[in-house]
Amino acid sequence: MDLNLRGKIVVISGAAGKEGSIGETILQRLGEEGAIPAVIDRNSRGFDYVKKLQQKGVDAVFCQTDVTDPEQIEKALNTISKKYGRIDVVINNVGVNDGVGLDGSYEEFMNSLKLNMVSYFMIVKYALPFLITSKGNILNIGSKVALTGQGRTSGYAASKGGVLGLTREWAVDLIHYGIRSNAIIIAESWTPSYDTWIRTLPNGEEKLKSIIEKIPLENRMTSTDEIANACLFTISDRSSHTTGQFIFVDGGYVHLDRSLLTDE
């Protein structure tokens, strides 16, 4: 199915993670669909990713940006808008489960909010005039932690809860402009960061096995390709009457009856 993304200017934050991360996978899929990715990330890997896309004939741009700094975000959006004259989609993908719990300081908690939620607000704020012109759309990458909790990660949980609130608020606020706003909610997906976390645990193999056993559909983790596919469909005009939705790409992890996980 042609998603009609060719030539669309797609601003995506947090797409310069390690190869195989959710953001990097979405970035590669955007290139394959002929979209024009405009990457906002603080990691210099973004330069290499964009260079490789350009070598394949894909137009792309990287703006190295600390998304906790509003001035840097504004500068990045100015650069993108001046280069292309339009913005069609914003994908807010930044997310770091930083473990800032109740024992964290005020500064640590606020920094978690700035990275994981406030950056979403600021990127949309500066992209909005262009989204209004293009009747574009917004896609926020969320987490099941906003709905289930996790423990010892108040900053991340609060941020991701706020992201879901913003998703619905923007869907209402911008509906008269024809702008759609949705969120993809992820549960357990195998990424480089997940691998790093598992390796820090003394019983990592056992922990991983117990997690996988709790995923109802096929008892496996969601692949980043599956997440990217859902993202691209949602931002495309093939999903043109979908707004204000929380789309779960989680193998039934959050909602399905736990009795599915018991042996008969």
Rank of each mutant, 00 (worst) to 15 (best):
L5R: 11
R6D: 06
G7P: 04
G7Y: 07
G20K: 05
G20E: 01
G20N: 07
G20P: 03
G20Y: 07
S21E: 00
G23R: 04
I26H: 01
I26Y: 01
L27E: 01
L27Y: 07
L30Q: 03
E33M: 07
E33W: 07
G34F: 10
I36E: 05
I36S: 03
V39Q: 09
G46I: 13
D48V: 15
D48Q: 11
D48W: 10
Y49D: 14
K51G: 06
Q55D: 13
A60V: 13
V61S: 09
C63E: 11
C63T: 13
C63R: 11
P70H: 06
E71G: 10
E71T: 08
Q72V: 00
I73D: 12
E74C: 11
E74F: 15
I80T: 10
K82V: 11
K83T: 13
K83L: 12
G85D: 12
R86W: 14
V90F: 12
I91H: 09
G95N: 02
N97F: 12
N97K: 08
N97P: 04
G101D: 05
L102N: 00
D103I: 07
G104I: 00
S105Q: 00
Y106A: 01
Y106H: 00
F109C: 03
L113P: 03
N116T: 03
V118T: 12
V124F: 02
V124Y: 02
Y126L: 07
Y126P: 03
Y126I: 08
L128D: 02
P129I: 04
L131Y: 07
L131W: 00
S134D: 10
N137V: 09
N140Q: 05
G149I: 10
Q150W: 15
G151V: 11
G151A: 08
G155C: 06
A157M: 08
A157L: 04
A158L: 06
A158G: 04
S159T: 10
S159W: 05
L164Q: 14
L166W: 03
E169G: 14
W170V: 02
V172C: 11
H176K: 15
Y177V: 11
I179W: 06
S181G: 00
A183N: 01
I185A: 01
I185V: 15
I186P: 01
W190Y: 15
T191Y: 01
Y194D: 05
D195A: 15
T196S: 03
W197G: 01
L201C: 02
N203Q: 10
E205S: 15
L208V: 06
I212Y: 05
N219S: 15
M221I: 10
S223K: 14
T224W: 08
E226W: 11
N229L: 12
N229W: 12
N229Q: 13
T234V: 14
I235C: 06
S240H: 10
H241V: 12
T242E: 00
G244C: 03
Q245K: 10
F248I: 10
F248T: 09
V249A: 02
V254Q: 06
H255S: 11
H255D: 09
R258E: 06
S259Q: 02
S259C: 00
L261H: 07
